[in-house]
Design a binder for these strands. Structure first.
Lengths: 226, 226
DNA sequence: TACTTTATTTATCGGTCGATAAGTGTAAAG
DNA sequence: CTTTACACTTATCGACCGATAAATAAAGTA
């Protein structure tokens, strides 16, 4: 079940003039949430005064909740990267009750619902261009918790010995599929251009391309056994 | 002024510190070239003083050659985007002397040689995140001069009537292939992570995936006629 | 009620930025 | 050699940025 967004407290009207007390934990979360939207739009070079204006407070108040702008930024991308990751993804991908193709489609349908948003995409690239470690860490997570499990499932589905190691080449193939899907998100949210296929169909065709490529790959390497 | 010049003008040893005349056009080009490298590393928010230091000159000199920082930046990405495009790409892609698969591989081998560089990739995303028009313009150019010609060649290769229109869905399929290849560049130059396959092999497998996907696409739509 | 606590504001500092004006010295022109 | 042109410098301005200190007002506590 999808929890509906918390009904924003009935606008306490304007004229927040001065000292509008709120619970501190709640306030902090509100700051981070709005900072995500703010920084995703203007980049991490966006000023704290402009951010404060959007929060409806004065600039020094930000420093009561975060020691520095960098700390706030760190919290922003940790929230985006970590809290939006769902462990269920790996669980479902490795559940052999259904065909691996269907599992892949279901995964990317769910995954793209999370990452194909303006904030996620832009925060991701702002952080990537900054050369932050968390970005490499995230790509590593995709590799370990998605692509490698997927390759393992494919070995099983293609009847390859469970002892056969997963090669870097196979993972590169999986990255090509992943990139084909991911690029649609780039086009939509970085370049603001939409595609002709719906998102589900984009995912399906990318996965079908991947399977066709795998057939060729395994055939050439004489690994296919069925 | 009180400060007495060192009067050591005699020892104009090593790098000539002052008044090092050069041809103005040459100097301008040198500024743009170094600015490409500089901005690709630190982003367009990089300071003019830091840039000047790398150029070995003082900061105000930049404003003798460019009216404003924005003008310099505009020249930077126009140089990267426009001057590195080769019209021969479209010519070769539509030359039916060889198989379309071979043409595609040859194109992406050449294209990735140009764009899979740290400067190109990073300038591209810095500009994309800034929401610059030139970015959409570039994506439009790839569509018009690569993907649509490719789809037309594929129609011919697959024996589809020359009157059949190229659909948005077909172009989306081509974008998936393009994105699969492009993403390897992102991994390498934005995340600084290398893949297992060589670049040529990455291109080949992405194209083979694409062809396999096309087969399925045309079969389902009953457009295939051979 | 008076007292304490703290969320929030006002005021401000030092640093950096893009940009401009004025000075300086060398190369080129005569 | 003298004069002129201009590539390049020094000095500086006003705006903005991140961050801090002190003042203020609202909430909690008695």
């Amino acid at each position: 079940m999808m929890d509906s967004p918390p009904a924003t407290d009935v606008l306490s009207q304007e004229t927040p003039k001065r000292g509008k007390r709120r619970a501190p934990g709640e306030r902090r979360k509100e700051f981070v949430d709005k900072a995500i939207i703010f920084f995703s739009e203007v980049g991490f070079e966006g000023g704290t005064r402009e951010l404060a204006k959007r929060l409806g407070v004065t600039q020094p108040l930000i420093y009561r909740y975060f020691p520095s702008k960098d700390d706030l930024i760190r919290e922003v991308y940790e929230t985006v990267y970590i809290s939006r990751w769902e462990d269920q993804w790996t669980t479902d991908l490795t559940n052999r009750d259904s065909q691996v193709r269907d599992r892949l489609i279901a995964f990317y349908d769910s995954y793209t619902k999370v990452i194909f948003t303006r904030e996620w995409m832009r925060i991701f690239f702002f952080a990537g261009l900054k050369g932050l470690d968390i970005n490499k860490w995230y790509v590593g997570r995709v590799r370990e918790r998605v692509l490698i499990p997927v390759c393992r499932e494919l070995h099983h589905a293609f009847g390859i010995s469970p002892d056969a190691e997963i090669t870097d080449e196979e993972i590169d193939l999986a990255w090509t599929m992943h990139g084909g899907i991911f690029y649609h998100g780039i086009r939509k949210h970085i370049y603001m251009l939409d595609g002709g296929l719906g998102e589900t169909l984009q995912v399906e065709t990318a996965i079908d391309m991947f399977f066709a490529g795998l057939e060729k790959f395994y055939a050439e390497r004489k690994l296919k056994q069925v």
